[in-house]
Nucleic acid binder design. Structure first.
Length: 491
RNA sequence: GGGGAUGUGGGGUAGCCUGGUUAGCCUAUGAGGUUUGGGACCUUAUGACCCCGGUUCAAAUCCGGGCAUCCCCA
């Protein structure tokens, strides 16, 4: 047998499972898991767009529900705004225009009629919300005014697109809020950061660092931008929710005024916050996944339990149904009646990442026991059937914590202090985040940041919100340092 | 922004250099059957050369153009 047919055989087999471990080749692992666990179908024939398949949709729906509940509890009211934004709105705020223009999809025609004023497919909805804010907000009694919507937005990305991580259409929540004072607005920004921690870390198990972005890297039209960076296994960071303290320029451009207690008309202060479900999903996949495939925190698992009857005899199928009924509302259960061999079904549920698998065969039936497998620990054990519910409760309670614990380890030892560009390059090239003293994250520091981009191929992510003491010199230009910044490659 | 590749059934690929039979293989999918405790097997069926032009008796293969996609570097 020659080499090429050996390879074919190997390739053929790998088509079912993953051909590489996550740690040995993350990039290949990621594209494989997207296809093989049926998260998304990339064959849709518009570049940068993909079909979201059930296994990812079910998870993202849960994320949405969770996020929306937290936001509503904190006083945000839900809206659905139109997808189209008139060019006129869009052009009102100069900084915004400059930042988003290169990425906007335009609708220029309806049927045969060419529009005189084209319409933007929203890349974000400030300019849609704000014109309505101007109509709705009258008095200080209307403030704070806190809204959100779940929406899909469109951006003509010029960087390489990747499924879920960066697509030209993505799914997110955007909050838009208005306040009477800058102080109130700043408190909202802090609340947004707290929300991010509650949801992303405490519920979804994703570790991140919140940075204040340098002045040259703020949201177009914002005064200050704070963003959570999640670290990927390959050492690159992914920007997750960001929250923005917006300049009053927007309120002025859209004429959003309120009559204050003193009888005077004043402009509001606005903030916005944008957690992207599709991108958070990408982080859940890449952070929690292992060599066998996906793993999910219980709360956002597409399904919780898969029951695999070893063969298709009616007694086993009946037993599976009975167990499903008994689990009832406690967890979402699928019974796998596909005609694949048991081994293949075991493997495919592990790849798909259900937290618990229950195998039922004649052996279990006879002994009144169940073979159970928990994905967080990849541990298989035999339990008495009557212990089933307490076992599920235990896994529900522990599995998210276990994943979180594993994920928190990621940052450990990955932050390396450096004092020169050379050291920085070395640290970044070996998959770390570099931390150094830096002249300034105001405009003055931009030149040094450009040097870093050019020499190291990485970006200044900003300053950690936890205050860090500065005593030395900028690692790039050698002038007196004012900040400690983190530098990383990003997606 | 710069560079390098590649387009062959649903997915992954061989064939291309050196033009020539019915375009091979793995996988997926449909049907039938034997199986079933960690990625089974048999029979059978469906299904492809990116587009336009050129060279030629003959093009998946060579040439030109277009379109699309992927990778790397800064």
């Amino acid at each position: 047998m020659d080499k090429s047919s050996d390879k074919e055989k190997k390739d053929g087999k790998s088509n079912k499972g993953l051909s590489v471990g996550k740690s040995e080749d993350f990039s290949t692992w990621y594209s494989e898991i997207v296809q093989k666990a049926e998260l998304g179908d990339l064959r849709y024939n518009v570049k940068g767009f993909l079909v979201f398949q059930p296994w990812s949709v079910l998870c993202m729906e849960k994320m949405y529900r969770h996020f929306e509940k937290v936001l509503q509890d904190k006083g945000h009211e839900p809206y659905f705004f139109p997808t189209l934004i008139p060019e006129e709105n869009f052009m009102k705020e100069a900084g915004h225009v400059e930042g988003f223009m290169p990425e906007v999809f335009w609708v220029t025609q309806g049927g045969e009629t060419k529009f005189k004023d084209k319409l933007a497919l929203r890349p974000t909805s400030e300019t849609a919300f704000y014109q309505m804010f101007a109509l709705w907000i009258r008095s200080y009694n209307d403030l704070p005014f806190k809204t959100y919507q779940r929406a899909n937005v469109f951006r003509y990305e010029t960087k390489a697109t990747r499924p879920f991580l960066r697509s030209r259409e993505f799914h997110w929540i955007e909050t838009h809020c208005a306040f009477a004072s800058e102080n109130d607005a700043m408190k909202q920004v802090e609340e947004d950061m707290e929300t991010t921690k509650e949801v992303l870390h405490d519920s979804f198990g994703l570790p991140f660092i919140f940075f204040e972005r340098p002045q040259w890297d703020t949201f177009p039209g914002a005064k200050k931008t704070f963003a959570a960076d999640v670290l990927n296994p390959d050492g690159k960071v992914v920007q997750q929710p960001s929250t923005h303290m917006i300049k009053q320029d927007f309120a002025k451009a859209f004429d959003i005024k309120f009559k204050d207690k003193d009888g005077k008309d004043k402009f509001v202060y606005t903030t916005c916050y944008g957690p992207a479900m599709s991108r958070i999903f990408a982080s859940v996949v890449s952070v929690h996944g292992d060599d066998k495939g996906l793993r999910f925190p219980w709360e956002i698992a597409p399904r919780h339990v898969a029951i695999v009857p070893i063969d298709d005899s009616s007694e086993l199928v009946e037993k599976a149904k009975e167990i499903k009924k008994r689990i009832g509302e406690f967890a979402e259960v699928v019974i796998d009646l596909s005609k694949k061999t048991p081994g293949e079904r075991f493997n495919s549920w592990e790849m798909k990442g259900v937290p618990v698998r229950i195998d039922i065969g004649k052996k279990e039936l006879k002994e009144g026991k169940l073979s159970v497998f928990r994905r967080d620990l990849n541990k298989k054990e035999v339990i008495a059937e009557k212990e089933m519910m307490s076992y599920l409760e235990k896994v529900k309670k522990e599995s998210t914590k276990n994943l979180m614990k594993g994920a928190d380890e990621i940052f450990k030892d990955r932050i390396v202090d450096v004092a020169s560009v050379k050291e920085m390059k070395k640290a970044i090239d070996s998959g770390n985040i570099a931390r150094c003293e830096f002249c300034s994250i105001d405009k003055d520091g931009e030149k040094c940041a450009e040097v870093i981009e050019k020499e190291v191929g990485a970006k200044v992510r900003g300053t950690n919100l936890k205050k860090e003491s500065v005593k030395g010199k900028c690692a790039v230009c050698g002038k007196k340092a004012q900040s400690v910044v983190y530098v990383a490659r990003d997606y």
